[in-house]
Design a protein around this nucleic acid. Structure first.
Lengths: 224, 224
DNA sequence: CGAGGAGTTGAAGCAGGTCAAGCGCTGTGG
DNA sequence: CCACAGCGCTTGACCTGCTTCAACTCCTCG
């Protein structure tokens, strides 16, 4: 229900696209950041490196997600971002974001919606890290990604794309690589999930939701 | 450098204030939420309850902080919020937030700034929970609160107000109450902090920053 | 064909969880 | 005014989920 002017404006944003290779950073923590990025294709991660070579992945950005939406009056990034898969981004001048809120209230509402959603996702990440066991963390994350994909793709059964390595999973869930591997095996052995290259099948969504205390409301709230 | 009209508008927001008793919820997860709250006095927590009686505190809201800034097109809350101390709030109609972005670009920029700050704080919380040891988590949290207070109060030395119980601290840092107590003692024994009723003294800020891998940039970025 | 990344598995140790008991303070009611 | 209930804090003892170190396999790519 957008006006022609609004649609034109949104399409105009996509003029300035760029591609990023796998494993390449496009936002660097503590460095200047004056661009807002919209993910067009592929997966990105937001993360932070610690001194000892440890890393915490904060969230995944999927097509349609926006990075650095509130960058306007900030000079340096509080996180890094890199391409998990080959990535296509639209680079937007943050001043245009301000323009949006003045000229296009409906689009502005959409951006506000995106922000609230990002908060809910990051909150879920904190719950995983703070209060769930290793198996629960894995199940909880898979369910999050499954629910998020359900919103941008047509029905894809119970499969979730998992392009990240077990190293990445471990750095997302605050666990060691070895224990991530073993916990994943334990979920497999319990028949809860099936794993194949780059995909995980959720064999019993209801049981997974139950065992991981996942709250679908946090995301279904953001269904269209 | 706000215009009179802007100042008048901001003061108008404070017309509708309310007080909340200690331990009382004013936002309930999964329930309707159609109000934006600005903390005027006291501390609030954002948290989520899990089925087994476990709880994860997501963040602390101090005077000047805003809860539910992006509530406009959302019907239900993805978290609960309650008063950690006696609390004074301003309740704002989210429609006024939209009004702001159209009419008062400078205030709107301020709100965007708040949002980015909240993201940085929640990201730090994920880093604590995911990649830090018990002692590091405590030190890291104290440093965050200390830095945040430095922005809203005059110089208060190395003291940080800590109105929360060790139960609350444990639920913030994803640890058990017993281990929180022991880790706090360990920090005390090392001479890094001194603890007295409702206050913690940071005896060696530099050492604490070092040992907890705290990144002050995440917050100093938001100094005025 | 060799190197290096990703996954898998075993063994040993430790950080943190759980259970349990006791202390000190505060508020409340007989 | 005292008794006692309840909450917050502390400490001991024991247990376990997770980490660390190490080795081996499989696959891909140059």
């Amino acid at each position: 229900m957008l006006s022609e002017e609004e649609i034109e404006f949104l399409e105009g944003l996509q003029n300035n696209t760029l591609t990023v290779d796998r494993a390449q950073d496009f936002i660097v923590e503590n460095a200047d950041l004056r661009t807002t990025f919209i993910v067009i294709e592929g997966w990105a991660i937001r993360y932070s490196d610690l001194s000892t070579g440890r890393r915490q992945i904060l969230s995944y950005a999927l097509p349609g997600d926006i990075l650095g939406l509130h960058v306007n009056f900030r000079a340096t990034a509080t996180y890094s971002a890199s391409a998990l898969t080959p990535l296509k981004l639209a680079a937007v001048d943050p001043r245009r974001v301000i323009e949006i809120s003045q000229k296009f209230p409906i689009i502005a509402a959409g951006l506000s919606w995106c922000t609230a959603r990002e908060f809910a996702i990051l909150g879920d990440q904190a719950i995983r890290l703070g209060r769930l066991s290793a198996r629960q963390r894995l199940a909880h994350l898979f369910l999050e990604l499954w629910h998020r994909f359900a919103l941008i793709e047509n029905d894809n059964g119970n499969w979730v794309e998992i392009p990240m390595t077990q190293r990445d999973l471990a750095d997302t869930l605050g666990m060691s690589l070895v224990h991530t591997n073993r916990s994943l095996k334990s979920l497999r052995d319990a028949g809860l999930v099936s794993v194949s290259k780059d995909y995980v099948r959720l064999n019993d969504v209801k049981a997974l939701i139950e065992m991981s205390e996942f709250n679908p409301e946090h995301l279904t709230e953001f269904q269209i």
